[in-house]
Write a protein that binds this DNA or RNA. Structure first.
Lengths: 207, 207
DNA sequence: CAAAAACTTGACCTTTTGGTATGTTTTTTC
DNA sequence: GAAAAAACATACCAAAAGGTCAAGTTTTTG
């Protein structure tokens, strides 16, 4: 038996509360605009207590960012050579749409970070993302070479899928306003998944 | 003859310098993170001078935002019934791509504002944008009814065009990193215009 | 060319905020 | 059940930042 069962209860709960509160504050106010006091209030504890768990604001932000990237990584779905272009794109688009609708906050944090120049990231975009896109582009290229799909630029295709799906998370305010709704419905998710899947497949000459 | 010829030289120049500097600061640091001092430094004048032209930081931001929205409005291109779906989409996509590549800053300011909940906007999104989308959706619907294009949801189509084009402005950092470039080239603009136009036309069943 | 208007600027004030210091209470461990 | 560790909380500090003031300089105007 390993001794470390799960003695961390109180810490875990507090950290989660802080991180959740911090995520909201960072989205609404930006990095500089989010105050430790506001995060503490939102988390329901005194400021000094927040600084007890995280040495400083920068650390809180990094923790939020790390959490966000993990979520992004998990939810990104995968593109597998053996699936063939049609199924692979269907799976990928669906995964991204679900991500956007169920976890818009992560998408927003990430978007703001990139827009502002990725000042707090570094290795992630520079190496990991580059590799991810390259490896997936190769798979698309493979399908194109075999005549399984139209000869289009795979990298541009990936960007289009990213942008068109993430849009529903990042710009949810705008979209809801335009559609005269207060919240997304289950129906919205399936409608958007449907639309994007069909549209993109057609764009790839797969329908 | 109207008396108001153009006696505003010095003011105009100063205001422009401030606005340009402010735009950069707001993008890089967010609303709260951008300091009046930093804007002043970047504009090459003392802080008090900036506050002479704009009563406070909020006013600077509003001016930047207004400038941004005007640019958005001008550059958005139009969708005309008489153009028919193919030409209209070609024109619209091209206008948006050019906007994104030539004026990424405006797109970024706008994106951040929306992501953060459009706290400084109000009427714009709520009425103007809603109307714009509705009126253009009607045109698409008209083409669909006449059998000139596939029966797809026009609103979703508009969102896809917006997102896929603006992506190149908002996420330019990420895209350049992934592509291992330091700047966009003329070639990138035409390549992206080409890709998106063809892809979207195919998605609409117009190719 | 003088008076007024527009512009420039350094000094200053006040509030906000990140972070610390210190002491108290609760929980865990042996 | 007592000592040690973890968690909680109040008061406080120093730096940063928004904004004002008042005095100076330049430009415009009649």
């Amino acid at each position: 038996m390993i001794k470390k069962t799960k003695p961390k209860k109180i810490r875990e709960v507090s950290v989660d509360k802080i991180l959740s509160a911090a995520q909201d504050e960072f989205i609404l106010q930006g990095y500089k605009g989010a105050t430790v006091q506001a995060i503490a209030d939102s988390a329901g504890m005194p400021k000094a207590n927040v600084l007890y768990y995280f040495k400083n604001k920068e650390n809180i932000y990094h923790a939020v960012l790390e959490q966000t990237l993990n979520m992004w990584d998990e939810g990104i779905g995968d593109i597998l050579l053996e699936d063939g272009p049609k199924l692979a794109i269907e799976k990928f688009v669906k995964a991204k749409v679900i991500m956007s609708f169920t976890n818009p906050k992560a998408s927003k944090i990430y978007a703001m970070e990139i827009i502002q120049g990725a000042q707090h990231l570094q290795e992630f975009t520079r190496s990991y993302l580059h590799q991810w896109v390259q490896s997936k582009a190769e798979i698309f290229q493979c399908w194109i070479d075999k005549g399984q799909m139209q000869p289009i630029d795979p990298v541009s295709l990936i960007f289009l899928i990213w942008s068109s799906t993430q849009h529903y998370a990042d710009f949810d305010n705008q979209i809801l306003t335009i559609k005269n709704q207060t919240d997304y419905t289950e129906n919205d998710i399936t409608q958007v998944t449907d639309f994007l899947t069909n549209f993109i497949l057609r764009g790839c000459g797969l329908k």
